[in-house]
Structures are given as C-alpha cells and as structure tokens.
Amino acid sequence: MNEELESRLRAALRPVAPSDEFTRDLIARVAADQRSSSDARSAHGRRPRARGWWLSASVAASLLVAAGVQHQLQERHERERGLEARREVIEALRVTSQKLNLAYEVIKNQSSFPADDKPGA
C-alpha cells in the first residue's frame, strides 16, 4: 500500500517548469544584479585610493598645524627672552642708580663739613 502511494506521489510531484517568460526575466534580473554587485565591488576597490588621498591630506594638514605651533612657541620664547633682558637692564639701572645715590650722599656729606674742622687746620 505504501509503495503504491509513494510511486503515485513521485509521479505526481515531478518538477514542473516555470513559464519561459519568467525564466527570461529571472535570468535578466539575476544578471543585472550580478553586474551591479560587480560595479559596487569595483567602486569598493577604488576606496583605497580615496583613503590614500585622505591620508596625504591629513598628513599635510598635521604638518601645517605642527609648523604653526612651532612658530608660535618660538615667538613666545623670543618674547620671554626679550622680557628677561628688559628686566635685567632695569635691574642694572636700579643698582647703578643706588650706587650713584650713595656716591652723591658721600660727596654731599664731605662737602658739608667746614674746612677748619679738618684736623691740623
């Protein structure tokens, strides 16, 4: 009984073909899909070049920024050196002024003593 049923099933369930029109459309669509996938892969293959361009641009921008920062640091360093020199000059002038004042005071004190006050006069 089972064998008979199985043979009837096999006979009834033999594969059937879709319509020719469907087959043509199917082949055309799959081929188009494969072409578009291939194009997408080609575009994907160009990405490394785009990445290379971006890498070059990034390196160039980084160098420019580094040069700018270096320039600013140098300017600040020179400005600090100028300020230090100015402070040193001011300090030297202050010391010189103090010494001159001291010398002036000594001369002034000496000139204020009368001549007869000098011993042996």
Partner: peptide, 24 residues
C-alpha cells in the same frame, strides 16, 4: 568568474527544481 552565459545556464539547469519546491 562572472560569465553571464554560465550563470544563465546554471539558472536554467536548476530553476525547475527550485520553482517546483516553491510552488508546492
């Protein structure tokens, strides 16, 4: 390898089975 004719042959060879399975 991307040969359209081979792909079409592949579809023609297997479509009956796939379609029948889907239909039933």
């Amino acid at each position: 390898a991307g040969e359209a004719a081979a792909l079409a042959a592949l579809i023609r060879a297997h479509q009956r089975s796939v379609y029948s399975l889907a239909l039933r």
